[in-house]
Design a protein around this nucleic acid. Structure first.
Length: 978
RNA sequence: GCUUGAGUGGUGGAAUGGUAUACACGCAACACUUAAAAUGUUGUCCCGAAAGGGUUGUGGGUUCGACUCCCACCUCAAGCACCA
């Protein structure tokens, strides 16, 4: 061991040795060891590793190494998700071959990854763009196709008519082409889909059995978006057979329907046109064409509607000539076509209940349609319950209570209400977008006329008040927020007449003011609110609000609660149905660098599978132009066309589209179990050895899509009898994100990318890895701005360990008799072991730091103690610990030959060693800490009480006090309540 | 707007309902040094001379005791975005 901790030398040396010794190559089975499969999402070979990759791979390596030391046969594989758009973009930009670009990147990144010193098993590497891999992607696709889970249909893509090209959603920002600014339109293409919707229910219900963090489950649930509702049929007047079917989750509002809306794509539109029952067809057609020219993005971008002052711009036209009948009450209502209704969800038609749905309300307001209330909220009892009236809607308001100080004197502006004679402060409603401060400033100018006001501070005491506002006869729930203002001078404009009639202003002296600031003043504010005047609101808030409550104006259903009414109305007028937001998975890409879809078409255009013996169905290499043109660049391949005709016959054509890269990554974890198999995608026995993945770490950007797709794929394979379990991942952990030093997401264009190579060169792989683990809890998806400053803390820690290592060498091997140190050591074993299991590496490291501090302050440290500590540290700093472990003196002291620390057994916790004999008992008086004393573990309540009462610091506080109660918490607290 | 997550020192963060601010960074003083760096020691939430008091986004509540549980509100981040 050298005096100096030379990380460069050490890390290089051990990485080479580990490779030679094949230390991390995993056998399929090892006698006496259980298999343990831990996985990280494989990277896209973008060119070089950034610090985010380190965070993604180096930190979970701590877990993998620990599991290995704990006696598991651990598989921790790595590969490359190598198909994808960037390769083509590079090809277009730099005229390089996408394949070469990709494989060069892989070679470079492999080298970078090696410098991490991770315990990856490189022998199991998979690359999704290798024909040996995508052969099986194709084979699996065909399996799904055979089962009817892959199908073809027309679907829209974003299309730029000027560039003559297909755009990805992110290239069509704001409905305009990213490159030329032209309006993006929709173009229909025949495309391949996976029927993931068939699995919606299972994908949802199987979540219940997974031990995943709740937020990940919720994210998936939301993505699947199950909603149970009612299908209702509205008959078209004078037509017995024709109906418009709608889907609603709020059947209870059926009596409040005042019109119907259908989507512009509504399927029956054509039929109506042919039957010529639409009287204003030209107008309707115009509207439909208008929406068609808009993109999905444009249609769904949130814009505030200036004509209604709220919500999103809603447009539509009435379909004249069609009226429908409400099945519940026989009322006749009009039908509109509007693009706020989506063609691809539900039935493409909705019943509109403007009184209880915001969107319907906005639309109704804009087009002057009637609003019919059928639900009234239930009121819960609170203050002011007597004033509250049952069965009346509640209006929620935030109001500011403006306490206004005089510009020079110690007096405050009060208001006297002429009607009631009541005195209070200026009160005003807080409008949307305002805070109490700005609302207060505005109200003061309006109500008092004073011009120069400044904000001082927010006063404590928000009052929540429920009351009946008598003038308007409305139930209100108000939050009053008192704020202190100061007038700068007496300059004053006139006050509007309206305000003058209502109130007089009066200066209040300090005494009077005091009353308002204490708790009692809340009563006054309260009375003020109860008084017969309120400035705010026009009652519209209640309309358009979705509420639960009691049915009114609903015939026989009056008085039922929302839940009851939904059941009863559904039973009587409709059918119970379930809908999902989840759409089928569009897997076709009009791109070159992807897995070819193994399908060919006969001269009649009928699709056929490419037979197994012709797999892999190779991606042709004679494509030169990768520019997206609305069809796949593969159409320019002579080789592909010739190959197809040669194998299948004249007039046969290949499928030119390639697959979404999410297909490649939906099954790769299976391939790791048997990466070189050329007979099967993976042998079933080998799959059984390893699957399901015990812990899968990845970014939270993948929870909704990649993880869901992989689950779908695995379920489909399970149904086909190809895999052994229906769920691929036992545990899923999402990590956080490393931001640039500027707190922004790292990107080349922002120039805030942290280069890990440089850093590793400077401080070493162990330091970088440990720093990333130390930055915060790994199982929470926080965001961490990269801060180089913190790295030195870890580097110092490792250097101190190194130094102790040197010191130990000069010590004898005799056991230390230090009980306290042993106790600390075992506490550290416990903490570190538990924290690694829970991915809380930050606190594990902090525990080791605390122990190191202890070690440094102990004169005689035994080799055994230090070795145990070194083993705990080994997964975190694999190179350095290995070096110390194998230093000549260390070997001599151990009387051993060179062997890896990473093959050592994880330190075992000895529970008897962490038992404390003495503990500190805290003495509280009324919950406040006043003293503490040492006592033996398990001290009785009586003993503790006596000891506590003997303390002068306790007696001091108990003078002239009577002890009412004593709370005793074993080994922790004695609390005297007086 | 909806969903989810989060608000604790100058910073990253720590705390099964039981001594809030562990650990680390930064900063300050001191030691070593001709000096600096490195290293080490000590200190470092706020008010206060002290006794003591206050403090986990805000306001309430439950409790002997609340960062932790409940209610309301505010702010930030991410995802979804007219899903009936």
């Amino acid at each position: 061991m050298h005096e100096k901790y030379n990380h460069q030398e050490i890390e290089k040396k051990w990485q080479e040795k580990w490779k030679e010794q094949k230390l991390y190559e995993t056998l399929d089975e090892v006698k006496g060891k259980k298999n343990f499969y831990t996985l990280v999402e494989f990277p896209y070979p973008s060119g070089n590793l950034h610090i985010g990759h380190w965070y993604a791979f180096a930190v979970p390596d701590i877990f993998a190494r620990t599991k290995r030391m704990q006696g598991y046969n651990v598989m921790f594989p790595i590969g490359f998700d190598a198909f994808g758009l960037p390769a083509e973009n590079a090809a277009i930009k730099n005229k390089v071959d996408p394949k070469k670009w990709t494989y060069d990147n892989i070679a470079f990144m492999e080298k970078q990854l090696q410098s991490m010193g991770n315990s990856f098993d490189w022998s199991r590497k998979v690359i999704t763009s290798d024909p040996e891999y995508y052969k099986w992607t194709q084979w699996l696709f065909l399996k799904l196709y055979e089962k009817g889970l892959a199908y073809k249909k027309k679907a829209g893509v974003n299309w730029c008519p000027s560039c003559n090209t297909v755009l990805a959603n992110e290239q069509a920002v704001g409905g305009k082409c990213e490159r030329c600014g032209t309006e993006v339109t929709q173009k229909d293409l025949e495309q391949w889909f996976f029927k993931i919707t068939d699995y919606a229910e299972r994908l949802l219900s199987d979540l219940d059995n997974l031990k995943w963090p709740e937020e990940i489950k919720t994210a998936q649930k939301n993505w699947i978006g199950k909603s149970e509702g009612t299908s209702l049929k509205f008959e078209i007047r004078n037509s017995k057979s024709e109906t418009i079917e709608v889907f609603t989750t709020r059947a209870d509002t059926l009596f409040g329907v005042t019109y119907l809306v259908v989507a512009p794509e509504y399927e029956k539109m054509e039929k109506w046109k042919e039957e010529k029952i639409i009287k204003n067809w030209d107008e309707v057609q115009n509207y439909i064409n208008e929406t068609k020219s808009k993109t999905e993005i444009e249609r769904t971008t949130w814009k505030k509607d200036p004509s209604t002052g709220s919500g999103q711009v809603k447009t539509g036209v009435e379909i004249k000539g069609i009226k429908v009948v409400n099945p519940a009450n026989g009322e006749e209502v009009p039908v509109f076509v509007a693009d706020y209704v989506l063609g691809n969800y539900g039935t493409g038609a909705v019943m509109a209940v403007p009184a209880h749905d915001n969107r319907d309300f906005e639309f109704a307001k804009k087009y002057g349609l009637p609003v019919k209330e059928v639900i009234q909220p239930l009121i819960t009892k609170e203050i002011g319950e007597d004033a509250f009236e049952k069965d009346k809607p509640v209006i929620e308001r935030r109001s500011v209570v403006a306490v206004i100080k005089h510009w020079s004197e110690d007096k405050y502006l009060g208001a006297i209400w002429k009607k009631t004679g009541w005195q209070g402060f200026v009160i005003g409603g807080i409008e949307e977008g305002e805070d109490a401060k700005t609302a207060g400033l505005r109200e003061i100018t309006e109500e008092t006329g004073y011009k120069n006001v400044e904000f001082v501070k927010t006063l404590p005491g928000i009052i929540n008040a429920r009351f009946l506002q008598r003038v308007k006869n409305q139930n209100r729930l108000a939050h009053f927020e008192p704020v202190l203002f100061r007038l700068k001078d007496g300059e004053r404009a006139g006050v509007v007449e309206e305000e003058k009639i209502l109130q007089d202003l009066k200066w209040l002296g300090p005494d009077e003011f005091e009353k308002f600031i204490t708790h009692a003043d809340m009563q006054i504010v309260w009375q003020r609110a109860m008084g017969n005047y309120c400035y705010t609101g026009d009652g519209e808030m209640v309309l358009g609000c979705r509420r639960e409550g009691i049915l009114v104006s609903s015939g026989e259903f009056n008085g039922l609660t929302t839940a009851e009414a939904i059941t009863k109305i559904t039973k009587k007028f409709g059918d119970k149905v379930t809908k999902y937001k989840l759409r089928d998975w569009l897997l076709s890409r009009q791109r070159y660098w992807g897995c070819p879809i193994p399908v060919v078409y006969d001269p009649q255009g009928k699709p056929h599978k490419v037979p197994g013996k012709n797999l892999p169905w190779l991606l042709p290499e004679d494509v030169k132009d990768f520019e997206p043109k609305g069809e796949s660049p593969l159409v320019t391949s002579k080789e592909l066309k010739e190959r197809t005709e040669k194998i299948f016959g004249n007039g046969w054509k290949p499928e030119f589209d390639t697959m979404d890269t999410f297909v490649d990554s939906s099954w790769y974890f299976n391939r790791y179990t048997d990466p070189k198999n050329d007979k099967e995608f993976a042998n079933k026995e080998k799959l059984k050895n390893w699957m399901p993945v015990k812990r899968y770490s990845g970014g939270d950007e993948h929870t909704a899509r990649h993880v869901l797709y992989a689950r779908f794929f695995h379920k489909a394979l399970f149904d086909l009898g190809l895999v052994n379990e229906a769920e691929p991942f036992v545990e899923r952990m999402n990590r956080g994100l490393i931001l640039g030093p500027d707190g922004q997401k790292m990107s080349k264009s922002k120039g805030n990318v942290v280069d890990p190579d440089e850093l590793v060169e400077k401080v070493g792989s162990d330091t970088v890895k440990m720093y990333l683990a130390f930055i915060g809890p790994y199982n929470e998806t926080g965001q961490y701005p990269w801060d180089l400053g913190g790295v030195v803390g870890i580097r110092r820690f490792l250097e101190r360990v190194w130094k102790i290592g040197l010191k130990i060498e000069s010590h004898s091997a005799e056991a230390s008799g230090d009980k306290k140190l042993e106790n600390q050591l075992h506490k550290t074993i416990k903490k570190v072991t538990e924290d690694i299991e829970n991915y809380k590496f930050n606190t594990a490291i902090s525990a080791m730091m605390i122990f190191l501090n202890e070690l440094e302050h102990t004169n005689q440290v035994s080799k055994g103690t230090f070795d145990t500590f070194l083993k705990l540290l080994a997964p975190f700093a694999p190179h350095m610990t290995e070096e110390i472990w194998n230093s000549p003196t260390s070997l001599k002291l151990r009387g051993a030959n060179e062997s890896s620390i990473h093959l050592e057994k994880w330190p075992k916790l000895d529970e008897t060693k962490i038992k404390e004999e003495k503990i500190t008992v805290v003495v509280q008086i009324n919950g406040k800490v006043r003293a503490q004393f040492e006592a033996e573990v398990g001290i009785s309540e009586k003993g503790a009480k006596e000891k506590a009462l003997a303390l002068p610091d306790v007696q001091k506080w108990l003078v002239d006090k009577k002890i009412k109660k004593i709370i005793f918490v074993l080994n922790k607290i004695v609390n005297f309540v007086v």
